[in-house]
Every structure is written in C-alpha cells, then in structure tokens.
Computed example of a mutant assay.
Amino acid sequence: MEFATKIKKYRQQNEWTQQTVAEKLSVSRKTVSSWENSRSYPDIFMLVQLSDLYHVSLDDLLREDHEMIDNYKQEHEANRKQDHTFVTSYIINVVASFYFLCRSLVGTGWINQLQPG
C-alpha cells in the first residue's frame, strides 16, 4: 500500500480531519492534504512524528512505497552534492583570502620588517 493511502487510512481510523492532524503536527491542512494525495512527502523529522501520532512503525509507513523511497534517495544525493560544492567553495575562499593577505603584507613591506627567530 502506498504511503499516501496509509496515512489517510490511519487518519480516518482515528476519525480525525486533515485539520486535526495538521494541528497535532503543527503544519497546515494543505500540507497534510499534499501528503495524502502524493503531491509531496514529509521530511524525516515529520515521518517520525507521523509514526508516533498513528502509533505505527516507520517501517510500516514506508514499506512498499518505492516512489517515496526513490524520492528520498534523490534528495540525499542532491544534498550530498550540495555539501561537496559548499566545502570546495569554502576551501577555495580560505586559500584565496590567505593569498591576498600575504600579497598585501609583502606589498606594504611590513612582512620584511619582521626579525627572524
């Protein structure tokens, strides 16, 4: 059974409206509707809260919904690439800053005034 179908079924078993679930999770009713209609997926933190709210395991929520699992894999890969780009940019900025700092110190002659030892 698909994730969206499961969370809708669990909500209906508890006789809750989407608004009730939204209030319990501190999200909008539209967000709950999007989850139940497979337009979007909750983040990992919210999955844990849904699991707690409906008293079901994460395994039960996620099992069999391969589209959702693929979506999380794609998000993970995109985040990994973003992290790599950030680290690379950070290192380049540090090296460039150090280079320009050294050039400016040499250019002013200040560094030549330092006594060795």
Rank of each mutant, 00 (worst) to 15 (best):
D70S: 15
F3L: 06
L47N: 08
N79M: 00
A78F: 12
G117I: 08
V32T: 00
K8G: 05
E15I: 10
A78H: 03
A4P: 01
Y72W: 15
F100R: 15
S104M: 07
Y10R: 02
H55V: 06
F45I: 12
K6W: 01
Y41G: 01
L47G: 13
V27M: 06
F100T: 13
Q12L: 12
I92D: 12
D60S: 13
E67Y: 08
N14E: 08
F3A: 08
E36N: 01
K30N: 11
S38A: 13
L62E: 04
N93C: 07
Q115I: 15
Q18E: 10
D59R: 07
S28G: 15
L25Q: 02
V87D: 11
S89Q: 11
D70G: 05
I111K: 11
S28Y: 04
S89H: 12
S104C: 01
W110M: 14
I44K: 10
Q49K: 10
W35A: 00
L114I: 15
V32H: 00
S38R: 13
A78G: 02
V21Y: 00
K8C: 06
H76Q: 12
L25G: 05
I7R: 00
A22N: 03
N79G: 08
D70H: 09
L61P: 02
W110Q: 14
E23A: 04
E64L: 03
T85Q: 13
I111M: 13
F45L: 05
F45C: 07
D65W: 02
S33T: 05
E64D: 15
K30Q: 14
T5Y: 07
K73C: 14
S28R: 04
I91F: 11
V95W: 07
G117D: 08
V87S: 07
Y10E: 12
F86W: 05
M68Y: 01
Q13R: 06
K8A: 03
V87I: 13
S26C: 08
I7V: 11
Y41V: 08
D43L: 06
H76L: 06
V106D: 13
H76M: 05
T31S: 12
K81T: 01
M46Y: 00
L114F: 10
S40W: 07
S38I: 03
Q74C: 00
A22G: 03
I111W: 04
P42N: 00
T5P: 01
L61W: 07
Y90I: 03
D60Y: 13
E23F: 08
Y99I: 15
K24E: 15
E75C: 05
E2L: 09
